[in-house]
Amino acid sequence: MSAPLIELKSIEKHFGPVIALSGVTFDVKAGECHCLLGDNGAGKSTFIKTMSGVHKPSSGEILVDGKKIAFESPRDAMAAGIATVYQDLAMIPLMSVTRNFWMGREPEKRFGPFKFIDFDKANKVTLEEMASMGIHLRGAEQAVGTLSGGERQTVAIARAVYFGAKVLILDEPTSALGVRQTSNVLATIDKVRKRGIGVVFITHNVRHAMAVGDRFTVLNRGKTLGTAKRGEVKPEELQDLMAGGKELAELEGSLGGTI
């Protein structure tokens, strides 16, 4: 495979006396879905925020297209083509799909000395982009609040892709969704990957990760425990690594392997 789009080497992040990350190494290549697995409190959120420019790492290197870079703000990360779709803060329910889609980057047309939003273009592009992700909206003017959770994630993903994301970070996109919604989001991830975008899929659900992942990295207690390629690792092993011990394996045994 080609060189990584973004590479993070031995990232450490300390908040005062708390060591949130103590050596995380991670990279994403074009057209792959790299799953970052970890239990609650493993440091997933801190790590995403470091990758998307919200936090500055205490030590370690970030390389974009092989060049060392330091993000001062989320805007820097966005400018470098790194888009993050947060689990709950992606959309504003009271605003229309179009208004959400273009929020912060509204297309304008000139009318004398004034500039107005070009709603014809905005609505058309929104519907097209959503359709390309497999969601056919009744109208781009409908409020995002009327969409299902999976559809909202898709609007956010379509938005990031349309605005030229090279790396798409998805923060637990499936954690609050039902079965059917989840499979829609997973299908969307597959579509995005096929366009040559590197997807970072954060989850604690091994089955969701196995469904679309090309590579898997497990984060436990602020450390990465290595990266495995698809086919090299079994779901049970990932599950064990996430839980970080034998207890779960024993519990799983007693429950008949259903976790």
Binding site: L89, I92, I117
Partner: peptide
């Protein structure tokens, strides 16, 4: 006109709708 037709108007809605979500996309 400002509210319904312009970029700034969209930012007004966004700031009141969810300030954090708006900040994330650069409003």
């Amino acid at each position: 006109v400002l509210l319904t037709r312009t970029k700034f108007g969209n930012w007004i809605f966004a700031s009141g709708g969810d300030a954090q979500a708006a900040r994330y996309v650069g409003v």
